[in-house]
Design a protein around this nucleic acid. Structure first.
Length: 211
DNA sequence: ACATTAAGTGATT
DNA sequence: AATCACTTAATGT
């Protein structure tokens, strides 16, 4: 399948014909494997990513190098931080890692402005912005106001959406790293969630029941 | 059979 | 909620 087909197949519901044509000309198709890095702090943003399938997780890193997960981006999504950064040609302030095997297309950042005369592009850009702003607020709530119990449950549910699967292959240790807490705490909280019937625990796997 | 890794738990701060 | 110290269970070689 060539880039043009991929673009028509996946984005014709989003963009008008003429924009699809321009996209096909310019966009680069890319495949990344699970856990592959797409972007790291300080790296210069050259492309706007557009997700076709799979999902990407976005982290904020603090001064000690500890990561906090902010949100997942999924099919049809783009990354609001890229949009934000490329407006000023800045460097990345976040880290992006593939949550699963992911297919995406890359658009050079200067196109962001060039295409603003397309109604569908404007709608897409501002829509994504809005979307991610909301998710950012949720991330703040999660860090500032939610207890561990709620944080972990939100994390699990977001992950189910990102992976389109209620069975998550993940260890307690990885969860603790992504939420920046300790493994022991995660294990205890998960045990409690299991008792409440929200999840089922298996070795290296969690099934989210209450969804 | 042995080592390694994941997960469970009580006690302490 | 975090840390320590220890146990138990599953998995790899």
């Amino acid at each position: 399948m060539d880039t043009k087909e991929i673009i028509t197949d996946n984005f014709s519901f989003l963009f008008e014909k003429s924009l699809l044509d321009e996209l096909s000309e310019i966009a680069k198709f890319k495949k990344v494997e699970k856990d592959e890095y797409l972007m790291d702090i300080g790296q210069e943003m050259v492309f706007i990513p557009l997700i076709i399938s799979g999902s990407i997780k976005i982290f904020r890193t603090d001064d000690d190098g500890d990561d906090y997960i902010l949100y997942f981006i999924e099919g049809g999504d783009t990354c609001a931080m890229t949009l934000n950064c490329c407006m000023k040609g800045a460097k990345s302030e976040i880290k992006a890692v593939a949550e699963s095997d992911t297919e995406l297309i890359l658009i050079p950042i200067n196109k962001l402005e060039d295409w603003l005369h397309y109604k569908s592009w404007r709608a897409f850009v501002f829509g994504s912005y809005n979307n991610k702003f909301t998710e950012m607020l949720e991330a703040i709530d999660s860090l500032a106001f939610m207890n561990m119990n709620e944080r972990i449950l939100k994390y699990l549910k977001d992950k189910v959406v990102a992976n389109k699967d209620i069975a998550l292959s993940i260890t307690h240790n990885i969860i603790s790293m992504e939420l920046n807490t300790s493994r022991v705490v995660v294990s205890r909280v998960l045990k409690k969630l299991e008792m409440d019937g929200d999840i089922k625990l298996l070795r290296k796997q969690i099934i989210v029941l209450n969804f």
